[in-house]
Amino acid sequence: MKKIIFVIAFIVFFSFLVVSAVNMRPFGNPTFSEMDDYFIKNAQSETGANNVVTSIVFDYRGFDTLGEATVLFTTIVGIVALFRRITK
């Protein structure tokens, strides 16, 4: 009984995935592209970096990177707290 329910749920969800994959827009044609066009056109002259990805990560979306660095720091604080007795 449990197995039959599992199989039915699997088929339903998988069919949803297939339908959404078929209905997806073609690759490289986003619905809204104003932001991308702005970055591609102006990132190099505004930040002076050849690597547009780095200019987005560290300049346009600096707060995001600050959050990432804080998450990493918190992870390491947690691990050090977890192993504090063992090292002493």
């Binding site: 930040t47 970096a49 050849n50 780095t54 300049d59 600096g62 990177t65 660095a69």
Partner: peptide, 16 residues
């Protein structure tokens, strides 16, 4: 080139 981006890269690299 690129202003503060290399400094931030170095800082984040040190941390990671």
């Amino acid at each position: 080139t690129a202003g503060v981006l290399p400094l931030m890269n170095i800082a984040v690299g040190l941390e990671v």
